[in-house]
Amino acid sequence: MVLPEFEYKKANSIAEAVALYKGYKGKAKYLAGGTDLVPLVKLRLSAPKAVIDLKGIKELKTISRGDGWLSIGANVTLFDLKNDPAIKGYFPALYESLDATSCETLQMRGTIGGNILQDTRCLEYNQSLQWRTARGFCFKMGGKTCNVVQGAKACFANYCSDNAPALITLSAQAKLAGPKGARTVKLENLFTGDGKKPLALEEGEMLVQIQIPLKKTKGAYEKLRIRDSMDYPLVGVAVSVAGTKARACIGGVGLVPRVYDLKNVNDAAVREAAEKAYAEAKPVANATLTPAYRKKMVGVLLKRAFNKALQEGK
């Protein structure tokens, strides 16, 4: 499938990348591993005038420790990150989510930044222009209503990063840079809930670093999928436990990963969180398994993730 016309620029520094972006007046896309972006452009879901390749920027490629944080450059590949001993040792939820992401070859190309900043997905959205034209454009494409939930003037696409939920359970923050300068936000605040623009990034902003408080956790990631490789999560549940406190985060259902904090981890609290997560999950018929089933699995996998996290900690 041929790509539509665009220009290719390579940046060697963040400043250069941002300057290039400004030059294209918002019509450019940053390119890291391309495993999310290139298919979107092929499907004509994204039509950049230029792509700005960030892979030449050295500071985006490093993993460093300091001041009680682990800082991960946005362009570190999922595979390299998974194999960094700090991850397995400190953040088992993240280790498991990285290991469960797509397949090994795409883990070697895909970056942590790109994985977090991926677009939301829907069976009626991730289709070719011809397909979508035949179907009629949905809300997310600029149409009037959703094609899955008849008549809804909203979007129910799923945010399918495996790693963002894991990072959120680890209280990770995102360091961003853009035309207006740098800022740091809690990762869970990166989501808008707006299907047309699911990520709270300013125009021209890029993800520079993911920072995780460097303290040991117990944790697990449970992923619902049909095949044990390649598939996006139909539900993804990350759990991290530090001391008596714990956090769970649900991905793969809806636009925003949902967070559940447990002040005291015990069976009752886990059960309560599972019930709450189940009640709040609102999957629709836009992925391969039925919504009722996916909803049920939110609670089941949350409990399972806690069991696993606490058992492995023993």
């Binding site: 397949c103 035949a134 179907r135 049909i226 095949r227 598939d231």
Partner: peptide, 16 residues
């Protein structure tokens, strides 16, 4: 409308 005319959502089993 065929919802999975691809090799991602049409699930050909993998080695694993």
């Amino acid at each position: 409308h065929l919802l999975n005319p691809d090799l991602l959502e049409y699930k050909v089993p993998l080695a694993c």
